[in-house]
């Protein structure tokens, strides 16, 4: 591999990694508060991307369509919490997990029935799909925009968590829900806020995913959701910064496997997940993860 190709692969790893990181933040947020692995996260992502597609097809401009997509995803996320998760607040965690899987199947199949399973072309605007040439290197605009968005969102989420009253309530919920209720805080309202935030992040992730790879279908969230989940676990689930780190590690691993061993490229997922197992063997809580009974975020 010559140096140019190597640099190009580094750019590719960075761009893919930032994509995973963006989606993993939302995953880890919801887990941090409810200790719920929200398997429907990838599907909320799909809902966000689909709503943008539909709104754009209905004649809205792209930015307006993005707004519709994010707001719609928030609505679906909060509604999911109210309908499916809230009645199970006191139930064992495993019931919640199974419900999350159920919601995931429900959303996938609902969109399958409504819109069919044939992939559709996502209307990515030209200004986001340009390619910048630097010498022999090719740098897609998204490879610049996505990391910036990811870092902005990371900063924003950390700000909300540590600098606002709501953030304090969210962190308190992560420790102990009944005690928070005793303090006179509207716990359900705060949980709704967490879902709204998580769904908005999922939608933003889904929209950027669809811009980078402009083909959307109702099952698009499954694989990328799984990867983002792996990234969140790798970084230490519950830790927002860890999710970003995990996303980058996963992205680089995948790209480097393909780059270094093209003959094994078909097994890149196996390598990525093998790496995940390796990390968990030595650090069961993930790279930045804390002991489950101590603080989070």
């Amino acid at each position: 591999m010559d140096f140019t190709t190597f640099l190009q692969q580094m750019i590719n790893g960075f761009s893919l990694g930032s994509m995973y990181a963006l989606i993993a933040i939302g995953y880890t947020m919801v887990y941090g508060v409810l200790r719920l692995i929200n398997f429907a996260h990838g599907d909320i992502m799909m809902v966000g991307a689909f709503l943008v597609y539909l709104a754009h097809a209905a004649g809205l401009s792209f930015p307006a369509a993005v707004l519709v997509g994010v707001l719609g995803a928030i609505l679906v996320g909060v509604l999911t919490d109210k309908v499916a998760y809230k009645p199970l607040r006191e139930a064992p965690k495993i019931s919640l997990l199974i419900t999350a899987i159920g919601i995931s199947f429900f959303l996938e199949n609902l969109f399958n029935v409504l819109f069919g399973g044939v992939p559709r072309a996502f209307p990515a605007p030209d200004y986001l799909t340009q390619v910048i040439h630097i010498g022999k290197l090719y740098l897609p605009t998204t490879a610049l925009v996505i990391p910036v968005v990811t870092l902005l969102i990371l900063a924003g989420v950390l700000w909300v968590l540590y600098r606002t009253k709501y953030g304090m309530a969210i962190r308190a919920l992560a420790f102990d829900i009944p005690t928070v209720k005793l303090m006179g805080i509207n716990a359900d309202g705060i949980i709704s806020l967490v879902f709204a935030l998580g769904s908005a992040l999922a939608a933003v992730g889904g929209i950027f995913y669809a811009i980078s790879y402009p083909s959307i279908d109702p099952l698009m969230g499954i694989i990328v959701g799984l990867k983002a989940f792996a990234a969140a676990v790798l970084g230490g689930i519950g830790s927002v910064t860890g999710a970003v780190l995990g996303g980058f590690i996963l992205g680089f691993t995948e790209i480097l496997v393909v780059a270094a061993f093209p003959d094994l490229g078909g097994y890149k997922d196996a390598f990525a997940f093998f790496f995940l197992i390796l990390v968990l063997l030595f650090r069961p809580t993930g790279i930045m993860g804390e002991d489950l009974e101590r603080g989070r975020f």
Partner: peptide, 22 residues
């Protein structure tokens, strides 16, 4: 010259493309 592997369901092929280009 080369055989490059992908997986159906994947969406990012930039690593493979860089190999093809080389």
């Amino acid at each position: 010259a080369k055989t490059v592997l992908i997986n159906s369901g994947d969406k990012d092929f930039n690593a493979q493309v860089a190999t093809i280009k080389a």
